[in-house]
């Protein structure tokens, strides 16, 4: 009899566990970015606006990760001697792209446009990406988890369209 009770309890517990864990199963990032990039130094100390480097934001769907062309624009001559800058020089000189890891990504069946959100919607970057200017090292987790419920919440709050085809394709 006890076996039966134990079985029931485990089944219920298992189901409840799966239900609660459903949202909590996240991708874990176990890597380090190639360069210990500090957003704090760039955005907070030198007050460089986000779009100065993340230029694609203004023109299309993908924000793009700035690479040696943009980095090299400033870092063509040494400014401060830090190990990070040395690495940047290395990449710039050898015309190699920096192998950044992308943290924010959307599935291919979702159309997320930075242009639409930043230029047309006039949203602050902080809304989804957090206060990047306070980060001294590159981020390793998504600030706002990319999940449909998060999108829908915000769209409903701001009376943006929640029509499926606006985002799905």
């Amino acid at each position: 009899m006890k076996k039966f009770l134990i079985l029931i309890v485990t089944v219920i517990g298992f189901a409840a566990g799966i239900y609660t864990m459903r949202g909590a199963i996240d991708k874990h990032y176990e890597f380090t970015q190639p360069i210990d990039f500090s957003h704090y130094v760039h955005a907070s100390k030198y007050k460089i606006p986000c779009i100065a480097c993340h230029q694609h934001v203004l023109f299309g769907a993908r924000a793009g990760i700035p690479n040696i062309e943009i980095c090299g624009a400033c870092h063509s001559t040494p400014m401060k001697k830090t190990p990070g800058e040395e690495q940047v020089f290395g990449y710039v000189k050898s015309h190699k792209q920096i192998p950044w890891y992308s943290i924010y990504y959307v599935p291919d069946y979702v159309y997320f446009s930075h242009l639409r959100h930043v230029v047309i919607g006039k949203l602050d970057c902080k809304l989804c990406h957090g206060d990047m200017a306070a980060f001294t090292s590159p981020p390793i987790t998504q600030f706002l988890k990319i999940r449909m419920s998060n999108c829908i919440d915000c769209h409903q709050k701001r009376h943006a369209s929640t029509d499926c085809w606006q985002c799905h394709r």
Binding site: A61, Y111, S113, L115, R116, I120, W165, Q166, R169
Partner: peptide, 16 residues
């Protein structure tokens, strides 16, 4: 889908 992805992009461009 009547290439609805083209509408998404075209609409966005026009709005911008």
């Amino acid at each position: 889908t009547f290439c609805v992805h083209r509408l998404q992009i075209a609409e966005e461009k026009a709005k911008a």
